[in-house]
Simulated scan of single mutants.
Amino acid sequence: MEDARRWLKKGLPVHPLTDGYMRRYGIERWVAQEELIDIGYREEVQIEAYEKEGVEWEFMYDPCSGEMKPVPIGTKKHELHLF
């Protein structure tokens, strides 16, 4: 994880990030996604997953967390806690 943090501190080295992370560390997609989320790249992982699945997405403001979240288009405000 420390090597990954150093690698990612240099900027997002590849796109899609999850694929590059998988290649670099020789791990499966779900492991790469979990590690990237743990390091702080939740938003990037979520957006990549949407794009891979062909889901149209947008940013919505979640007043409970005070964050902008990437969510599928059409997400209702009361569903934001799910993302």
Rank of each mutant, 00 (worst) to 15 (best):
E2L: 06
E58W: 08
P16A: 04
E34R: 15
E43F: 03
G26N: 13
R24F: 08
E28T: 11
V71K: 04
L36T: 08
R29S: 01
V14T: 14
A4N: 15
M60S: 04
Y41C: 05
G26I: 01
V31D: 13
K9P: 02
F59Y: 10
G74S: 15
Y41A: 03
Q33I: 14
Y25W: 12
H15V: 07
A32I: 07
E28D: 08
L82D: 10
I37R: 15
R42T: 04
R5S: 02
I39A: 11
E34H: 13
R6S: 03
D3I: 14
D62V: 10
L82T: 15
M22A: 08
D38V: 03
K52E: 02
W30H: 11
G54H: 00
Y25S: 08
P16S: 06
M1D: 15
A49C: 06
E28M: 11
T75W: 01
D62M: 10
R29W: 01
Y25C: 07
L36R: 07
G20K: 00
S65M: 05
K52L: 00
E28N: 09
E34M: 14
E56L: 10
G40A: 02
D3Q: 11
M68Q: 09
A4S: 14
P72E: 09
R5N: 03
G40W: 04
I73N: 02
Y50G: 01
A49G: 09
M68H: 06
M22G: 07
K52P: 00
C64D: 14
L8P: 00
E2I: 02
M22V: 10
G54A: 01
Y41S: 02
Y50S: 01
V71Y: 03
R23W: 11
I37K: 15
K76P: 02
G54I: 00
W7H: 08
Q33F: 12
E53V: 00
W30C: 13
D38R: 13
K77C: 08
T18H: 00
K9D: 12
P63Y: 09
K10H: 09
K9F: 04
E67M: 02
H15Y: 09
E67R: 03
G11Q: 09
E53W: 01
P16Y: 02
T75Q: 01
V14A: 11
G26A: 09
L36P: 03
